[in-house]
Design a protein around this nucleic acid. Structure first.
Length: 188
DNA sequence: ACCCAGGGTCATA
DNA sequence: TATGACCATGGG
């Protein structure tokens, strides 16, 4: 649910929305299915795009329902198949699907977000036109396939990405100058 | 008064 | 398949 609520919105806003859902006892999939969309929208208002996101949450709750509201059952298939199912849900695109796979299902999937794109772009490690899957392959072919390190890596990229200095070439004091995301260097 | 935030859908060409 | 409009609140 957090993966949907945080779309294009800061996490602090999402925390309020989740707090509202908790206090209304409306965070469980069965409740999310039952609650009227208008009331759900009111609860998640701080997370922005509340009308759209209300329906997205309901769509996710629907998917959970198809698995008998049992996360272990939802997350039991192979990663590729699960990703395909997630992408079929309204409001779930590639990044959201991969976030759910990494953080909820603990699958070794590298998440590509705005910050990751920004950093890769500034380092000149991929053309600006690179697709999501191209960037994902860039990381996954260079890093060991481990849920924990992908998790940590993504957190570090987010932290670096918040630096909004966009001078080009890179200014000498920019942290980006001294880092390369890949252990074997930028090549191949 | 801006700008931006860990996106995605839909209509259009 | 690529681009643009649209969704909307809260903090800097």
């Amino acid at each position: 649910m957090g993966a949907v609520l945080t779309q294009a919105v800061s996490w602090s806003n999402v925390e309020r929305a989740i707090a509202n859902l908790k206090s209304a006892d409306a965070l469980s999939p069965p409740t999310l299915r039952r609650i009227p969309a208008e009331e759900l929208a009111r609860l998640i208002r701080p997370a922005g795009y509340y009308n759209v996101k209300a329906h997205k949450l309901k769509a996710l709750a629907q998917l959970m329902g198809d698995a008998g509201d049992d996360p272990a059952r939802l997350f039991n298939g192979d990663t590729a198949g699960l990703r395909h199912r997630l992408l079929g849900v309204y409001g779930v695109g590639e990044e959201t699907a991969d976030s759910i796979l990494l953080y909820a299902a603990s699958r070794p999937v590298f998440v590509i977000d705005t910050y990751t794109r920004r950093i890769i772009g500034r380092l000149g490690l991929a053309p600006p036109t690179a697709s999501y899957s191209e960037l994902q392959t860039l990381f996954m072919t260079r890093l060991p396939t481990e849920t924990e390190s992908y998790n940590e890596y993504h957190a570090l990229l987010v932290r670096l990405g918040k630096n909004r200095c966009r001078k080009t070439p890179l200014c000498p004091t920019c942290p980006l100058v001294t880092i390369c995301p890949f252990p074997q260097g930028p090549g191949q």
